[in-house]
Computed example of a mutant assay.
Amino acid sequence: MHPTYAEVTAAAERISGYTRPVVAARADADTVPIAGEVWLALEHMQHTGSFKARGAANFALAQREQGLLPKVGITIASGGNAGVACAWAARLVDSTATVFLPDSAPAVKVSRLRALGAQVLCGGDAYADAAAECERYAATSGALRSHAYNDPYIAAGAGTLLDEIVAQLPGLDTVVVAVGGGGLLTGITVSANHHGVRVVAVEPERCRAFNAALEAGETVDVEIDSVAADSLGARRVTPMALSAAAEGDVRSVLVTDKQIIAARRTLWDCRRLAVEHAAAAALAALLSGAYVPAPGERVAVIICGANTDPIDLVAR
């Protein structure tokens, strides 16, 4: 069951003072040459370099409130960003984090984890393999099991982002968001449903767990093969995401890796924003024409993460 809007507002109160308010910046015609009014929600400037800090803080603080934090700490499986956020949030509550990563996790994210004092363990070839190792560790150690996206506290924390965007952009028509496992999509959609905002859910063509679930009418496994797979590479979307989407105006669109790479380059060339490929996926939907706003439509594009190695952006 997905979180309620009341749980999103409770999360906003809980994490206030711990997370950074999002910055919304108007996109000029050089960045997004379309008819609509486009704003970039610069959530890559959040603590830990991604929106994941919101859900992680909400989870950790809620567990502390309920007296559920074990001495052995918190454990999570992650492609990188959720693990970094978990390690950061664990420090907020004087705890520790053990993070299981797939072998393909980017080195920049591994370095961030170690800098935050997390114990980093390898968990196999893919996120699903790391998740299985994490489950075994939690069962044997007694560590509190967190989840990168399939948890109501995580999703509710992510939903606080749209409330902040709407407060800055009254009359917002549409929010465009990249989708992996569905935690961000769930929270954003719950908030969007409350405010009457359309959600455009963007996925790589070869990382389409949400899109495939919509087609099938239920969650299904998909193959993962994308330049953005380290952040968007969930094999299966959460039932929460499907449930929240069924209650509002959610459109699913797909983009190619080539389009994601081009959008990431545009953010660097036009705005000097060094972001990861997943963060560029949402913008790719507009630049590629996968989603075409109506003239005058007010659109917010969530730039969700910046845990990347920018060397390929600056090198020519």
Rank of each mutant, 00 (worst) to 15 (best):
I260W: 09
D230W: 02
V222W: 08
G183I: 10
T238S: 15
R272F: 03
G180W: 10
L184G: 03
R235C: 06
D249N: 08
A279I: 13
R198C: 05
D269Q: 09
W268K: 03
L185W: 00
G217Q: 11
V197N: 10
G180F: 13
R251Y: 01
V179D: 11
E276A: 00
G248N: 02
R298S: 02
A209N: 10
A300P: 13
G187W: 03
A229T: 15
L232P: 12
V202G: 07
A213Q: 04
D173G: 14
V199E: 07
S231E: 13
R272M: 03
L172G: 01
S231L: 04
L273T: 06
L283Q: 03
A192H: 09
A284N: 07
R272A: 10
G181Y: 13
P204C: 02
T174G: 11
T256L: 05
V237T: 15
A263N: 06
L287P: 05
P204A: 04
A212D: 13
E297S: 05
L172I: 08
A178G: 12
G296K: 04
I302W: 06
V200Q: 04
S252C: 14
P239T: 12
V202T: 14
Q259F: 05
A280D: 01
L267T: 02
A263C: 08
R236D: 01
G233V: 07
V176H: 03
H277E: 15
I260Y: 03
A241E: 01
R198D: 10
V176L: 11
V176P: 14
C207S: 15
W268Y: 15
V237D: 01
I260K: 02
R298W: 01
I188P: 12
I224T: 13
E218H: 13
L232F: 04
G217L: 07
T266R: 14
T186L: 05
A281R: 01
S252N: 08
G196E: 13
Q259W: 02
A294M: 12
L242N: 07
E215Q: 15
P239R: 13
P239Q: 09
A245Y: 03
A241S: 14
A262D: 11
L283F: 01
V190F: 09
G217D: 06
Y291G: 07
R271H: 12
R251Q: 12
A284K: 14
A229R: 08
P170S: 10
D249M: 04
A300W: 10
R264H: 05
T266D: 03
C207Y: 06
V292R: 06
L169P: 11
L214C: 14
V222L: 12
R265E: 06
H277Y: 06
S243I: 05
A262Y: 02
A284S: 12
H277C: 12
R236Q: 15
N211M: 04
P293W: 06
A294R: 12
A192C: 11
T266N: 00
L232E: 07
S231D: 12
V299S: 00
E297T: 11
V275A: 04
C207V: 12
V275G: 00
V292K: 07
A216W: 10
D230R: 01
A209S: 15
S252H: 11
A290Y: 00
A234V: 10
P293D: 08
H194P: 09
A234R: 10
G233F: 00
N211E: 14
S226V: 11
R206Q: 11
L273D: 00
L254I: 02
R198I: 09
A290R: 03
L169R: 12
T174Y: 12
